[in-house]
């Protein structure tokens, strides 16, 4: 059974001038950790707001746990947990007060569902009398996750939970999600491509559309082009020279090197090397693509170099 079904959802702003979501359809299986990956403005938050019954879509249909997001919004609200991208707990209440407030709102107590939040809450417990506004970024996110979980939701919506969180906390946060996944369906959005590989399935989003939807491995597998990592002494000159070559479908800076993508039969490594012979210190290595490379390949037709 599908936990979430989205069919042809479209949402526009400014009387149709801005398309936040453009005919989006997908479904999320029970117990899945589903990732929405895309840059800012891709439409991830709009999608969350529609699924969490905060906004109405212009057209299309969506269901959460078999309940319609428009008709059954009251029932849905009892069964979902939502963690907005912006920290939205009461900063002037303490950790414990926040958690018990949200627990009692859903007619439950911290103790009743303690096992669900235990892993996270033990880390927060030393600070339970501290005001939420005084917590560090990572702690805030953990508290927000606790508050979204405390009523034992069936589906958890996490909108960019790790944005602005340090790398260690990010890693911890994802480990928690993996542990929760056995009991709860999770939909998470993130602009970080490295987090995509931790999901069961991901949807790559851009400009309100889903570009590709597959498992992280499936998405990497569908990458048919050749990808090379090229480094040289004059990186700036190099990037211009490569982009000027024929049949290069993508060339972008990636850390300290350039990732160059082209159809498999267009170039050979030696051919490329001789075309760039005027550059000193040239290092060319074939590499396996990551999610980010796949994403760049997908958006290339849309974005100018």
């Amino acid at each position: 059974m599908s936990a979430v079904i989205v069919e042809h959802i479209t949402k526009t702003f400014n009387k149709g001038k801005i398309k936040a979501l453009d005919n989006v359809s997908f479904s999320v299986q029970e117990g899945e950790l589903f990732g929405l990956i895309g840059p800012d403005g891709a439409g991830k938050t709009s999608l969350f707001r529609i699924l969490t019954t905060l906004w109405l879509a212009d057209s299309g249909k969506a269901e959460v746990k078999g309940l319609d997001v428009v008709q059954d919004y009251k029932a849905i609200r009892k069964r979902i947990g939502y963690m907005p991208g912006k920290f939205s707990l009461y900063q002037d209440l303490t950790v414990e007060e926040n958690l018990s407030f949200f627990a009692t709102l859903f007619n439950t107590t911290i103790r009743e569902n303690y096992d669900l939040v235990k892993d996270i809450y033990v880390q927060l417990e030393p600070f339970k009398d501290r005001k939420a506004g005084k917590l560090s970024g990572g702690m805030k996110q953990k508290l927000a996750l606790c508050c979204a979980l405390i009523h034992k939701p069936d589906v958890l919506f996490l909108d960019e939970p790790t944005t602005g969180v340090d790398p260690v906390s990010r890693k911890e946060f994802w480990e928690m999600l993996r542990r929760l996944q056995s009991r709860i369906t999770i939909i998470v959005s993130t602009p970080y491509m490295d987090e995509a590989t931790l999901c069961d399935r991901i949807a790559l989003m851009q400009d309100g559309r889903i570009m590709q939807l597959d498992t992280p491995e499936g998405i990497v597998r569908s990458f048919n082009d050749t990808l090379l990592s090229i480094r040289g002494n004059d990186m700036f000159g190099l990037i211009g020279a490569i982009r000027a070559l024929p049949e290069i479908s993508g060339c972008y800076a990636f850390g300290e090197s350039l990732h160059v993508r082209f159809p498999a039969d267009a170039w050979t490594e030696t051919g490329l090397r001789s075309a760039l012979e005027q550059f000193s210190g040239l290092v060319i290595e074939p590499i396996t693509p990551g999610i980010e490379d796949c994403f760049m390949a997908l958006i290339e037709p849309h974005a100018a170099h």
Binding site: T53, L54, R77, K78, Y82, P84, F102, L105, F106
Partner: peptide, 8 residues
Amino acid sequence: IEQLNVSP
């Protein structure tokens, strides 16, 4: 208010 709106 978002948190409150998604609660019952």
